[in-house]
Simulated assay, not measured.
Amino acid sequence: MPIPRKIALLCLLLAGPAGAETLSLAQALDAAYAQNPELAAVGREIGIAEGERRQAGLLPNPELSWEVEDTRRSTSTTTVMLSQALELGGKRGARVELAQAGQSIAQLQLERQRNALRAEVIQAYHGALRAQTALELAQQSQALTERGVRVAEGRVKAGQSSPVEATRAQV
Rank of each mutant, 00 (worst) to 15 (best):
E87A: 10
T78M: 15
S76N: 12
L88S: 07
S76Y: 03
L108Y: 09
R53E: 10
R72T: 06
E97I: 12
L82T: 03
L88E: 06
Q103Y: 11
P62K: 03
Q107W: 06
S65T: 01
T71A: 12
T71P: 04
T78Q: 13
R72H: 05
P62H: 00
D70E: 11
E52A: 15
L58C: 02
S83A: 13
L98N: 15
Q100A: 15
A101W: 13
S104C: 08
T77E: 14
S104T: 14
E67C: 04
A101F: 11
G51L: 05
A99F: 08
E97K: 15
L59V: 06
I105P: 02
V96D: 02
L64D: 00
L58K: 08
R73F: 07
Q109W: 00
A94S: 15
A99V: 07
T78N: 08
G90H: 09
A99M: 09
N61R: 07
D70P: 05
A94H: 13
N61Q: 05
L64W: 04
V80S: 04
G102N: 12
G89M: 08
G57L: 11
G93S: 14
G57C: 11
G57E: 05
V96M: 14
T77L: 14
L86R: 00
V68Q: 08
R72E: 03
S65D: 00
S74T: 12
G90C: 10
R95P: 03
R73T: 04
Q100K: 15
L86Y: 00
K91G: 01
V68W: 01
S83V: 05
A101S: 15
E63T: 07
S65I: 00
A85R: 13
E67G: 01
T78P: 04
L110P: 01
S65K: 00
S83L: 09
A99H: 06
L108V: 13
D70Q: 12
A56Y: 03
E69D: 04
L58T: 04
M81K: 08
S83P: 01
K91Q: 05
A106H: 01
S104A: 15
R95L: 04
